[in-house]
């Protein structure tokens, strides 16, 4: 029974992941027309699709034997994720993606990859401190970029206007604040659940010597 539910869920994840990817790719022209849409919808769609792909069973990463020993505690994987997200925050990268379909295709692959690797690295990070660091670091970077975009005196992208840039900056700050708040809430709820679970478990039987 449980296996059937898992398979059904797996199919849902796969369908959703493929839908998000298709939407992002097919609506490329519309979504890349404004910096706001590009950074806050197009890119998250692709990263989200990657995350969903990582939930499909059989899990793609675990098939690579010994992968977890390379990605101990998810550190190596999260470095890659941070690097990929940083790369697509650079104005030149955004402009190149808008102007060149082949660079845009590369962007799609890298962002999907980041979603997949990010999910498996998050799972691998059994240490709560590591998770806080991963999430906190990424959110802080996004908020900083938002502040830079909001306050920049000149247009940074040749493909987007000044007001677009400013609006994107404000939106990025709001986005990272919202995600940060959600993460804190999740952390509090999750730790509360764990505490409840620990308290409600019957005490283990004493070992027989």
């Amino acid at each position: 029974m449980r296996k059937n539910t898992q398979r059904a869920m797996s199919k849902t994840y796969l369908a959703l992941a493929l839908t998000l990817t298709c939407v992002a790719v097919l609506f490329r022209d519309v979504l890349e027309q404004r910096m706001l849409l590009h950074m806050l919808i197009h890119i998250p769609l692709l990263v989200g699709a990657g995350v969903l792909f990582a939930h499909v069973r059989p899990r793609p990463i675990s098939r690579v034997s010994g992968f977890s020993s390379w990605n101990n505690q998810g550190v190596a994987g999260w470095i890659l994720v941070t690097g990929i997200i940083t790369a697509w925050m650079i104005p030149r990268a955004l402009d190149s993606a808008v102007e060149s379909p082949s660079i845009d295709a590369l962007k799609v692959c890298l962002l999907l990859f980041a979603g997949v690797i990010g999910t498996s690295s998050w799972r691998a990070a059994s240490n709560a401190v590591a998770r806080v660091f991963f999430a906190g670091n990424t959110l802080w970077m996004t908020a900083t970029l938002g502040m830079l975009l909001r306050d920049a005196p000149t247009r940074l992208c040749t493909s987007y206007g000044a007001r677009d840039q400013q609006e994107t900056g404000v939106a990025l700050i709001a986005f990272s604040a919202a995600l940060g708040a959600a993460a804190v809430l999740y952390g509090l709820l999750y730790s509360a659940e764990t505490l409840d679970a620990c308290e409600s478990e019957p005490s283990p039987p004493p070992h027989s010597h």
Binding site: W70, N71, N72, T82
Partner: peptide
């Protein structure tokens, strides 16, 4: 392997 993994990913980034 952990160390190598980190080195490889830093290089890639």
């Amino acid at each position: 392997r952990s160390v190598l993994g980190v080195i490889v990913s830093i290089t890639a980034v």
